[in-house]
């Protein structure tokens, strides 16, 4: 599913965010990426989602080389990947339903099918009764679950999450981790960058330190 071969990422004029990173993730795995702040966890996820391009090495996602992907092909790759961003990137002028609807509108889903999918996703994360609420009216945990619902509504084969349990209390964080685990159980490959790696039943654990993979 994902293959990193001697991947490096450098942000000029600073140093390397990632160096000589090589690993593989098979389909259906739940991978936890851990490391201290600045270790390169977010950069790694951004490289997989083609938000950033590698400075060196090769990244294959679903058999596609991210580095050589054309600008016009990028959107279609991203539609196959669900992303939960560290800052969630919710649209605060749209209600819960409309936020989750956005990826389906982008992909051009018929309105009726899309509405059903949105309700199913909201039901899955326990927000079915809050579809008319604006994100500002939700608690931190609910906002995180909303971000997860938006990431999974288009039923991606790969789900990326950047610190999905940050700023959540232990109980809510466990609840969020359980949701990721459930998606993994139905075949979705999940990659979570997190401090709280012990909450996730990971099948693979990637430990980063100053942009390098610890063995």
């Amino acid at each position: 599913m994902i293959c990193f071969d001697r991947v490096g990422k450098r942000y000029p004029p600073g140093g390397a965010a990632l160096s000589e990173l090589s690993f593989e993730v098979s389909e259906g795995q739940l991978v936890v990426v851990s490391g201290h702040s600045g270790a390169g966890k977010s950069t790694l996820l951004k490289l997989i989602a083609a938000i950033e391009k590698p400075s060196s090495g090769t990244i294959l996602v679903g058999g596609q080389n991210i580095g050589s992907l054309s600008r016009s092909a990028l959107p279609y790759l991203r539609r196959r990947i669900g992303i939960v961003f560290q800052d969630q990137k919710l649209l605060f002028d749209r209600n819960v339903f409309e936020n989750v609807m956005l990826p389906l509108s982008i992909a051009g889903f018929p309105q009726r099918d899309a509405a059903q999918r949105v309700r199913a996703a909201l039901d899955k994360v326990g927000l079915a009764r809050r579809e008319k609420a604006l994100p500002i009216m939700l608690s931190g945990g609910e906002q995180q679950r909303l971000a997860i619902a938006r990431a999974v509504v288009s039923r991606p084969s790969l789900l990326l999450a950047d610190e999905p349990t940050a700023h959540l209390d232990r109980e809510t964080a466990t609840d969020v981790a359980r949701i990721f685990s459930e998606f993994n159980h139905v075949g979705v490959t999940v990659l979570v960058a997190t401090y709280a790696y012990e909450l996730f039943p990971a099948t693979q654990h990637l430990r980063l330190d100053h942009g390098r993979l610890l063995q």
Partner: peptide, 16 residues
């Protein structure tokens, strides 16, 4: 701006 950036991250084409 926020909507455009999020849409791009979620796979929106330039045309969209």
């Amino acid at each position: 701006r926020a909507e455009i950036e999020v849409s791009q991250l979620l796979g929106a084409t330039d045309g969209y």
